[in-house]
Every structure is written in C-alpha cells, then in structure tokens.
C-alpha cells in the first residue's frame, strides 16, 4: 500500500450523491460525506429497501428544508471531519486536538446569525457531530448572558405568573451575579 492511498482521495471510485437544496442548487458529494447526514442515509436506505435503485452510481436527493448556503458550509465541515478522522485513525487524542483546532478556526468565520441557520440545517440533516458542535458554540456564546438576552435570542417570552420568576431569582440569586451587559 502506498502512502497515497491513505489520504482522502476525491477522485476515488466511491459513488457520488447529488443533493438538491430548497433554492435549487445542486451539490455533488462523495457517498462518505452524504452518509454523515442521517436524513440522506435514511432516504438512501429506504430506496434500497424498496429496490428502486437503478444501476447508476449517481442518486439525486432533494432537501426541501435546507438552503445552499448552510449546506455548503456543512459539506466543508463534514469533509474536514472525515479527513481529520482518517489522518488520526489510531490516535483518538490527536484526533480530538485536531478537531478542536479546526472547530476554533471554523467559528472565527461564522457570524452569529449563520449559527442558527447551520443548527437548523444540521438538525434537519440529522448530522449529529455538527449539531453538537454548533450547540456547544451557541452555549458558549450565551453562557454569560442575561435571561432577557436569551429570551430574545430564542424568541421566547416569559410566561410565569406574577411573583414566580421573582421567587426563582431570589432563590438562586448567586446565579445572577457577574452576568454580561446586554
């Protein structure tokens, strides 16, 4: 085995899968990437079970709930994820370090509004690693924020009866110390 075969090779013989977004953009991705999206995998499995698959190596899968912008970012993230995994197949710790490094860099290029978009796309595609990562990112962005900020962020309103919220605030007063200004 040569060294070359160990690095991810985009022109390898693996099947391509075509994803079509809600804004009618078409993405051709490797099967390994598409299979990280459980929703796509599920679709694929259903097709196979129904014996619908033809002999062609390209399958088109419509994604009516995903726009092209977040999908492009998710595909990049996924490819990198697979690459880091392949490069550190026998060293879990190294893999985690590489992944952390990549994720830190990744977040520098993501706007807060984009994060919500990415979360929704990752959730729809059921791409667990990405969803966990984005959720952690949101968590670290809001951890020092006020209750009011968080309500606004999630589009929620207080539905406590008068006095209920004050009681909680009083009981856990320590948790309201040192909160960032909105």
């Amino acid at each position: 085995m040569s060294n070359q075969s160990e690095s991810p090779n985009p022109t390898s013989s693996s099947n391509k899968i075509t994803l079509k977004t809600s804004d009618n953009e078409v993405f051709e991705v490797e099967e390994a990437v598409a299979m990280k999206f459980c929703t796509v995998k599920q679709y694929f499995d259903d097709e196979n079970n129904n014996n619908v698959t033809s002999g062609t190596s390209t399958t088109l899968i419509p994604l009516p709930n995903v726009e092209s912008h977040p999908l492009a970012i998710l595909i990049t993230y996924c490819k990198k994820h697979l690459e880091i995994k392949a490069n550190n197949a026998d060293n879990k710790k190294e893999m985690e370090i590489d992944m952390e490094h990549y994720e830190r860099e990744f977040l520098k290029n993501v706007m807060p509004q984009e994060l919500t978009e990415l979360i929704l796309a990752a959730n729809y595609l059921n791409f667990k690693e990405a969803l966990d990562f984005f959720c952690r990112a949101v968590a670290s962005a809001i951890q020092n924020k006020s209750v009011e900020y968080v309500r606004k962020f999630f589009g929620l309103e207080s539905d406590f009866k008068p006095g209920e919220e004050e009681k909680l605030r009083e009981e856990f007063a320590w948790s309201f110390e040192g909160v960032d200004e909105d």
């Binding site: 809001i142 951890q143 209750v147 320590w174 948790s175 909160v179």
Partner: peptide, 18 residues
C-alpha cells in the same frame, strides 16, 4: 441540546427564561 452544554450557573439562571 444547547442548554445541556451550559455550565451549572447559567443553567440555573435560565430556569427564569420561561
């Protein structure tokens, strides 16, 4: 999922959200 990644202090504070 998001709230489950928050530190204890934030989790307790955010009981007041709704």
């Amino acid at each position: 999922n998001i709230v489950a990644w928050l530190p204890v202090k934030s989790v307790i504070r955010f009981r007041c959200v709704c």
